[in-house]
Computed example of a mutant assay.
Amino acid sequence: MTRIVVLGAGYTGMAAAIRVATRSRRSGGRVTLVNPSPRFTERLRLHQTAAGERLADHSIERVLAGTGIDFVQDTVAGLDPEARRIRLGGGRELAYDKLVYALGTVTDVSVPGVAEHAYRYDDHAGAVRLAERLRSLEEGTVVVAGGGLTGIESATELAEAYPRLRVVLLTRGRPGSMMGERARAYVMRAMDRLGIEVREAADVVKVLPAAVELAGGELIPSNATLWTTGTRGLPQAREAGFTVDGRDRIVVDDVLRSVSHPDVYAVGDAAAVSRPFGVIHGTCQSGIPTGLHAGTALADELRGRRPRAFRFGYFHQPLSLGRKDAVIQFVRPDDTPRRGYLKGRWAVFYKESVSSSPIPTFRLLKRGLVPVSLFRLTAG
């Protein structure tokens, strides 16, 4: 019996666990999945939770039913890769033969005051706390720091849900700078329609209890500050001696195995996955394919086969602009924008189709199937 432990039950960890469990039943694989929460969190939709929308509550044990996977609800306190043991927060230890590290990332809180005074999307509870705060405000200002996809989705979602509040988006560069000019212009018109105040070249140097301070000393009053400007891996991998990059993500080879500890696979946001065009940035679009690949590679190892190299190319940048609007920027495999894009109701339909709940995908995986859309995403 080969003991396979998967750490983290997000999009990538769930995909990896179900994939390897279904493919290794006849070759002696025993899979254990560890996660601090008993519920599966749709992290891509936390901006909807912050806006007061109640999403479906999915029990991890219910999702895993029928797979033979053992679920352990606990936190990861430390790793000993030399002894192949995991120390859990409750004091228990788990031994493994193969490990899938899918603990994801957390918000980078290196800017003073972020950890103490800013709301963050590190978990479902953080989005709920922001929603509770916004519901309590009769008026006031919400500051969203970060002009990437998460920042834009959050600003538009909150502006639409709480029209009584002033929403300010702060970004060092141009909002949506990764998109093509036409798609980006549509985003700017949508934010203008929703009354969002956009401040470009805004370098936040400190978050205060009721304001944010910009370089130069300007203070912007804030009744609630949401921080979306960057992420980094958890410290456990670095502290355990894994080779990590500058953001504490485990550096992996072309099969997604740790370059320093090849009995460990790292997937999703927690992995520094290099492609010819650079290191993949963490999204569901890339995350689930890494989880599927790691699960397949592990099953191949148990059968005595040589795992194939991971292949991936980007296809699109889906961006919601509230519940009734969206824009989809189609991209080349290296994530640079193509000419084509969708907007309006067609973009809403498209985004809901490709970025909807992954639960149906997990059900297909339990039956040994993979959605056609995921084959396309891994064919770059």
Rank of each mutant, 00 (worst) to 15 (best):
T225S: 11
G173R: 10
E138Y: 06
H261P: 05
V143E: 06
G147Y: 02
R164I: 02
P235T: 00
D253Y: 07
D122R: 02
E132N: 07
V205M: 12
R249I: 05
V244K: 01
M188Q: 14
E160N: 06
T243Q: 09
L169T: 01
T150F: 03
T229K: 11
G230K: 14
T231W: 00
V207Y: 01
P163F: 00
R249P: 10
L137N: 02
R199N: 03
A190H: 05
R172K: 14
V212K: 06
R135W: 04
A125N: 10
V251L: 13
P221V: 12
M178R: 14
H261Q: 15
E153F: 04
P235D: 09
V204P: 06
M179G: 03
M178C: 05
R238F: 13
A183N: 01
R129F: 04
V167K: 01
D263Q: 13
G147C: 05
R238H: 10
E138G: 14
I220N: 11
D122Q: 10
A161W: 01
G148Q: 05
R232N: 12
L226I: 11
H261V: 08
S136Q: 09
I196H: 05
V205Q: 13
G180A: 09
L158I: 03
A125G: 11
V212N: 07
R184I: 02
T243L: 13
L219G: 04
V198S: 01
M179D: 03
L214H: 08
L137S: 07
V168L: 09
E239W: 08
V198I: 15
V205I: 13
